[in-house]
């Protein structure tokens, strides 16, 4: 062979294959747009219904009103037909229960994470970690059932014998169950964060004659503090958005109170109670659930975005 055969470097892929490639591309693109579409769908559907609601009830009445008693008018001219839609008692109730949960879960979760990452041998870790994962995997409806059936009566009994007045659906019962539920979340996130602290810092501390607990308390935890803060924010967001535990173990009536022994209601409880059963779609009562949903979405979104930024920044610091 003496003549050079020219190599074909231009496109020789047949038309059919090209069409196929384009179709596959489109399919892939559509699939990934679903994920983005869901977010847009959430924002628009909630905002649309909430807008309808704010036509009937002013935004400031909703955000700053101190009374929540959503009613549907039986007759048009009925007195107080509109009910009151002040979300403040729901917000405080949500915060109260979430705060109790965080007070329970933060020390338990952090102490577990520290023990598992710094002290426990591989065998203990191999047993305890899956157990904590089970705790995280149990459906919240189970926690709700247990809180209503066992924890609440127990707290009531203990409180009564101590001479305290305890509501049968106390914020404390719901908060305790929720706290246990988020322990695994905090412990696994903090465990990752603590493991990311460079070994060099531990060596430096041990080299100076520090004990292990001194190293943990004075070097590792301060070094990991921003990552831990991020994981606590994520846990708080989970607590605020949690529904079933509070639906089953917290109160239904709005109550502006900071007493953990009283019954308070939460945003999620109200959404459920407003929307279960038949509903007409144009009443302020039904629409208010979407306004609450929108509020919940933005609060949790803000917490999540903040948490993810903090954690990302933290990881870059030690990479």
């Amino acid at each position: 062979m003496t003549t050079h055969q020219r190599l074909s470097l231009t496109r020789t892929i047949p038309l059919r294959a090209r069409v196929y490639e384009t179709l596959v591309h489109l399919l892939l693109l559509t699939s990934s747009l679903v994920a983005v579409g869901v977010t847009i769908g959430i924002v628009f559907s909630l905002a649309f219904e909430a807008f309808e609601f704010f036509k009937r009830v002013p935004v400031e009445d909703f955000l700053f009103g101190l009374e929540w008693s959503p009613q549907t008018a039986i007759r048009e001219d009925q007195v107080g037909a509109q009910g009151s839609f002040g979300a403040v008692p729901l917000i405080t109730g949500t915060l109260l229960i979430s705060a109790i949960a965080m007070i329970v879960a933060t020390p338990l979760g952090l102490a577990s994470a520290v023990y598992l990452s710094e002290y426990a041998g591989p065998r203990t870790r191999a047993v305890v970690k899956p157990v904590l994962e089970i705790l995280a995997g149990i459906p919240t409806v189970v926690y709700g059932f247990f809180a209503a059936l066992v924890i609440a009566p127990f707290i009531r009994m203990a409180g009564t014998s101590a001479g305290l007045e305890v509501a049968s659906e106390s914020a404390l019962a719901a908060g305790l169950a929720m706290g246990i539920m988020i322990v695994p979340l905090i412990s696994s996130l903090s465990d990752d964060v603590i493991n990311a602290v460079p070994q060099a810092l531990r060596d430096a501390s041990y080299g100076l004659g520090a004990t292990q607990s001194e190293t943990i308390r004075k070097v590792i935890l301060p070094a990991a503090i921003s990552g831990i803060a991020g994981s606590l924010l994520l846990a708080a967001s989970t607590a605020i958005g949690e529904t079933m535990i509070v639906v089953m173990a917290a109160g239904l009536a709005a109550n502006l109170s900071a007493n953990p022994l009283e019954a308070v209601t939460t945003i999620t409880v109200q959404i459920v109670s407003l929307l279960t059963g038949d509903q007409e779609f144009d009443s302020a009562k039904t629409l208010s659930a979407f306004a609450l949903g929108l509020l919940l979405f933005f609060v949790t979104l803000a917490l999540n975005v903040a948490a993810q930024r903090i954690v990302k920044h933290y990881r870059e610091q030690y990479d």
């Binding site: 977010t39 909630l46 529904t243 959404i271 979405f297 949790t300 999540n304």
Partner: peptide, 17 residues
């Protein structure tokens, strides 16, 4: 970022959607 946040949206919000 959107997907990470979607994973942390309270489940009840999906119900509302």
């Amino acid at each position: 970022v959107n997907i990470n946040n979607l994973a942390a949206v309270p489940s009840i919000v999906f119900g509302l959607l």
